[in-house]
């Protein structure tokens, strides 16, 4: 019990320590940004510091929090739907070759249609509402999750299935004890990808459908030529995505992949 806690604490410590490298990368980006600012001036590209100040001002005003919350909620709703639909359909298709063969061309068509077309259709069907944003996210995110689940089912180690069968596991327990872990290994990277696209599509759908949220604020900043405001909104949206990814999905992934950690030379326990 104590070991389980210390193991996780040391993992968290290593992760936080590795954040320095990430921070260094971000600083490099900010330096390039500053260079661009000095070459083109504040109107085209506001300075990073200026943008940060604008972002913190937006947050202090209070209105930004509500808008960020609204967009996050929409993205989360769309993402949750995409995750559930994609996982269930993907697992079924993975186990049934016939369904997989039928769904491949459908998937190609769905992926082929640009998200912007779906936004237009959704606006016609649902108007400027939560549903428009959620539907667009579901359509753009589901195929990614679906393919992850299919990959997980089809590439699973069948030797382990036979092993479980020898020890008396029926089809259901073979799925819950053996297959689900292998599916999760493929599913989680797909979910990370889908979460990222959920936020991007949410902002885009809001902007185009005039449904408020961060996208709506971006549209207003554009019409008022408020460049530093627009940049500040982008910054805030990215920050929320990073928080969502590293607070929710990454810890789950780290927990499931503990054994991979053990295989690394510095993770070997004696």
């Amino acid at each position: 019990m104590i070991r389980a806690v210390t193991d996780r604490l040391s993992r968290l410590g290593r992760f936080l320590w590795s954040a320095w490298a990430g921070l260094a990368g971000l600083c490099l980006l900010a330096a390039l940004w500053q260079l661009g600012h000095e070459a083109y001036g504040s109107f085209i590209l506001p300075a990073p510091l200026e943008t940060l100040q604008a972002a913190s001002a937006l947050i202090r005003e209070g209105e930004a929090q509500a808008l960020l919350w609204l967009t996050s909620l929409r993205a989360a709703l769309g993402f949750a739907l995409a995750a559930v639909i994609g996982t269930v359909a993907g697992v079924i298709a993975g186990y049934s070759p016939a369904i997989l063969r039928l769904s491949r061309p459908v998937l190609t068509v769905v992926i082929g249609v640009p998200p912007i077309a779906w936004i237009v259709l959704a606006i016609i069907w649902f108007g400027a509402s939560m549903m428009t944003v959620a539907l667009t996210i579901v359509i753009s995110g589901t195929p990614v999750v679906f393919m992850g689940a299919v990959e997980g089912v089809t590439t699973r180690d069948r030797g382990l299935d036979a092993m479980a069968e020898v020890f008396g596991a029926g089809p259901i327990r073979r799925f819950t004890h053996i297959a689900s872990r292998q599916i999760a290994a493929h599913l989680l990277p797909a979910l990370v990808l889908a979460l990222g696209s959920a936020f991007k599509v949410a902002v885009m759908a809001e902007l185009l459908s005039n449904a408020g949220g961060v996208g709506g604020a971006l549209a207003r900043a554009r019409s008022m030529l408020d460049i530093s405001g627009a940049m500040a909104w982008v910054l805030l949206a990215v920050a929320v995505l990073i928080v969502a990814e590293y607070a929710v999905l990454r810890p789950i992934q780290a927990e499931l992949e503990r054994w991979r950690e053990a295989a690394r030379p510095w993770g070997v326990k004696h």
Partner: peptide
């Protein structure tokens, strides 16, 4: 060996007991 890579040795050995 057909061990489950995500489970410890103890977890792997305990698997048939869990199934039983």
């Amino acid at each position: 060996p057909r061990l489950m890579p995500w489970a410890t040795v103890a977890g792997n050995i305990a698997f048939p007991l869990k199934m039983a």
